[in-house]
Amino acid sequence: MPNTVLIVDDEPSITVALMTRLEAHGYRVYHAINGLAGVEAAALHQPDAIIMDVRMPDINGFDAFERIQRMPGLGRVPIIFLSANSQDAQRKRADSIGAAAFFSKPYEPAEIIAALESKLTDRLTKDRRVSHV
């Protein structure tokens, strides 16, 4: 079964571009257009990874992720933040809430795929280890 990724971004062009690329790499992609819709979509689809914008019209990406982390089955879901802000403060906030990666826009598409693949592999290995125990 393909890995599933949830994209949460209020800019449709970014969502379409990311979907095109991720689907070409064999991922199954869901998307949401704002923070709260992202929280609902995460609960519904239980994605293997999330790619989320930081600045969104309702709640910001950090707050949305903190809500997602508290939901059953999503406590360890890897998240990649995309931000139009390159400032250190946002990068540090992302680190502090346990983000897998933080990229400022415009991002290098290859870097996103690489980060996604490495996190999903990590998680798979850890899950296997847990199931052996």
């Binding site: 800019e11 062009s13 970014i14 571009a17 990311l18 095109t20 690329r21 070409a24 600045r55 995309l82 139009a84 802000n85 390159s86 400022s104 826009k105 415009p106 991002y107 598409p109």
Partner: peptide, 25 residues
């Protein structure tokens, strides 16, 4: 800061679609 922010998203869109076409997707 706002202008910088507003520039980045369209730049990301341009870069990403150029890359999608260039990668043959």
């Amino acid at each position: 800061e706002d202008v910088a922010h507003e520039f980045r998203t369209p730049l990301a869109v341009i870069q990403e679609f150029a890359s999608i076409i260039s990668d043959g997707l």
